[in-house]
Design a protein around this nucleic acid. Structure first.
Lengths: 213, 213
DNA sequence: ACAACAAGTCACCAAACAGTGACTTAATAA
DNA sequence: TTATTAAGTCACTGTTTGGTGACTTGTTGT
């Protein structure tokens, strides 16, 4: 007395592949890259691990394909940017604050950044290089011309601010405060954003060739 | 015809315990915290893993004891500090640049910082809290009074600069350049140090109550 | 000298994990 | 309908890892 139409187990290679990729993302967000074991991935996807070897060649290739599918930096240069008449000051402020918020709200990106600090891997290098390329468009075309000989000084300052914005978002694992600022509260995060804007402003005030303000 | 004095296998509990602690440090520096497996630790120490359970109760306790033995921040307030007459500006510059160099030259500290971003663990929290406590002495006593109402703004700026200095030292795993600055070369690192000093200087110029310079 | 204790070793077990061969069964096209 | 192909399952092997009981042997106090 068993229904023969109980669960006709769907058979769809593409969909299954996607299920594996989704499973990788889910595990990454929750447990981090160290939790990406074959058995766990298969269990999370609800499919047999054998298929991972069939479809991707192995866990490493699956993971690489997952990483390759990511696209964090495509929206870094939003369309609604005001025209550049200030050497990129407004853009720099906006970009920094947005990046800070974006990383803070995106667990997946946080885990990828941490992974990139922890493991050498081609596909992770690609993520980092891609970000570099996106940033370079802004730096080379907008701020470098404005700062002239001081261009690399400005780049170093931006490197510090961007990486600081990253680190402060990765930081609150064991302790929430950094220099006494609670980086998990709205107040603390606002303080940091204000500081980002202030620092950019100061760099522009100081180093702009014409406007000594 | 065997020498009975071949290798009389030393027996010394304290020395063996130290060998285990040293092994943890060695593995941490080379492979990172993920490489801290019982068998590897025992092999590196040249002793049987059973002793780890005997002496420490387990790997976790061994690792905790190792972390507890660390002392990275005791020398943050060096004796040769000039007297504070500038609201701590010179001190802030010096501390930041020294921290940047210190982290860059200390693989062990780098691994501990990364570990602290990756895993929740009491003993790691202690390391972070200790650093916070050290920093708080300087911030509360020197810079807070100087900046008055803008104190937390300055703290946020320092948080960004310190964490930026950390991140840039952890960064070059997959890619060496950040914002186009090669953080592995003397030139790039000097540029970053100059930027650190410049940013501190600007914050002091802008926010010092009396000297509008 | 030697009893007693603790340092240290070794063999062994159990669980977690990666990987594969042989099978079952759904979809499809002749 | 049925032969073929490929999606998917399952049971199994082998390896790595954590952990422990039973043993051997150096050290120490008397």
């Amino acid at each position: 007395m068993e229904k023969k139409t109980a669960k006709p187990r769907e058979r769809n290679k593409d969909k299954s592949k996607q299920q594996f990729l989704d499973a990788v993302g889910k595990i990454l967000k929750t447990k981090g890259y160290a939790g990406l074991k074959v058995n766990d991935i298969a269990a999370t996807a609800g499919l047999d691990k054998k298929l991972i070897y069939k479809y991707f060649g192995g866990v490493d290739q699956l993971i690489d394909e997952y990483i390759r599918s990511l696209d964090f930096w495509s929206n870094v240069t939003p369309e609604d940017m005001p025209p550049i008449t200030d050497g990129g000051e407004a853009m720099a402020k906006k970009t920094l604050v947005e990046q800070f918020d974006y990383v803070g709200s995106n667990k997946e990106l946080q885990k990828i950044l941490l992974w990139g600090l922890s493991e050498k891997r081609k596909s992770l290098k690609r993520v980092a290089d891609e970000r570099e390329a996106v940033g370079d468009v802004l730096l080379s075309n907008i701020t470098d011309p404005h700062f002239g000989e001081q261009a690399s000084r400005f780049r170093a300052a931006m490197a510090l601010l961007v990486s600081g914005a990253y680190y402060l978002n990765l930081y609150p694992v064991n302790t929430k405060t950094f220099c006494g600022i609670d980086v998990t509260t709205e107040e603390g995060r606002n303080e940091i954003k204000k500081a980002l804007e202030m620092l950019v402003e100061l760099v522009y005030e100081k180093n702009s060739p014409k406007t000594g303000k």
